[in-house]
Amino acid sequence: MTDLRVVDVAEAQLDSVWEVRIRSFGPGGDRDEWRKTALRFIADGRYLGVVDGDQLVAAARIWPFEQWWGGRRVPLGGVAGVVVAPEYRGQGVGSLLMRGVLQRCVEKGYPLTALYPATTVLYRHLGYEFAGGRYKFSFQAADLRTLGGKGTAVRKASRADAELFLQLAGKSHETRRSNGPLIWPTSEIESWLEDEDNFAYVADDGFVVYNWSDGNLAVDELVAGSEETARALWATVGSGASIARTVHAYCPPFDPIHLLAEHEAEGDARINRWMLRLVDAPTAIAGRGFPEGVVLEADLRIDDPELPTNTGDWHLSVVDGVGRLTPSEPSSDALRLGPRGLAALYAGTPLTALRGAGLAAGGAATADSALDAVFGGATPYMLDYF
């Protein structure tokens, strides 16, 4: 393997990518639909591969997302479909591919990148760390049916409502100062609303998208700007209680439904954890929202072997909900972080946990509580698996 190199995947290589994908994830999926999606990634330079000579042996694609942090939108490259041919695993091919992905995220201007890991070893080695979860709760459908909200007008949604959905979700996440939810391209939302397997309803200040799942119902997303709208939309889903005993719902652990439903969610809540990495630390800090009224001045020393532009001495300033990370002189009071510690801090992991895991060291004795206050907030979560 002397001729391994990272390349942009070409249309002629998609059959090879599909073969490696089947060997990596097993059979399944619609090949024609997968190919149509892959061509969009290729056209925008967001599909990368590794070749050995002329043979494609690994591939990954990058979704063009934005992500909410502190109630503000930050561009994010969502890494998905990472596959390596079985005979090339354990030989550094995955690391080579992901280094190419990181560089492409730099070129595309994504200050953040995230993924759902099949293995943590590879991604931690390259600076990713756990930042949040995708939570799936199960409720009794009959409970939801009786929540009320009958005075709220709810109508069936269509493809034409895609922009309205984005506006309603944006207003909700800004108000809640959400951490973690993704903003998908409008074309993807239009596609979901066209899918006859999805049931979408909209009110003046909210919407719901749900579908059938093995004889039960599953809520992909429910946004409500008021109690009455929340009751009306959940009751719409619960109206299927004569057929479906259970409603599975992807929502954060602090969603109002946990306070509205008469019975507690079932005890088998499922969590898929996702990992985050800062690609451009100053831009990621500048894009993130911070609590109003909290002021912080702190020195950081970042050591990022994969992305040297993040490495150095920095001064972190947070005032009036806005953060700035600027180059500074070395300080004996600097908090020392690698890319994993920086990602975890950005996502609100307490300094005591970072220190206990060896991901943070040094720093002024009084700074930890201030950093926790600045980066803390709502539990980071995603609703989507990509």
Rank of each mutant, 00 (worst) to 15 (best):
T309Y: 07
V74F: 05
L126N: 01
Q167N: 14
K171V: 13
V237C: 10
G78K: 02
N310Y: 00
I243H: 10
L316A: 02
Y47I: 07
T379S: 06
F290L: 12
F254L: 10
E306C: 03
G356N: 03
G81W: 00
S24T: 15
V83C: 08
I271L: 15
A334W: 04
G77E: 02
T152M: 12
K136L: 15
E221K: 01
T146S: 12
E33V: 13
A365K: 10
D313A: 06
H248C: 06
S317W: 00
A80N: 09
P111H: 00
F65K: 02
P252S: 13
G49H: 05
D384R: 07
L345V: 02
A235D: 01
R355G: 05
G29Y: 04
L342I: 01
L14P: 09
L337M: 11
L233M: 01
W69C: 13
I42G: 15
A361S: 15
A244Y: 04
L164E: 15
V318D: 00
E228Y: 04
N198D: 07
R340Q: 15
R23H: 12
L102W: 08
V9K: 09
G90E: 07
R21T: 07
S16V: 08
Q140Y: 12
Q67S: 06
W34H: 13
H315Q: 14
A232N: 01
D299N: 14
G289D: 07
G81F: 01
W314I: 00
D268S: 14
G321W: 03
A230E: 05
H248D: 15
A58I: 02
T283L: 08
D54W: 02
G376F: 02
A347K: 07
V219C: 05
G133E: 13
R23Y: 07
V279I: 15
V208E: 12
L342C: 10
T120Q: 13
R273H: 12
E264P: 03
A343K: 06
A12G: 15
R40I: 11
Y123W: 03
K156H: 14
R155D: 00
A200Y: 04
V318M: 06
V84Q: 07
A269H: 12
G225F: 01
F375R: 04
Y381E: 01
A298R: 01
T146H: 10
D384T: 03
R21A: 06
A361P: 08
H248K: 11
A334G: 03
Y201K: 06
V279Q: 05
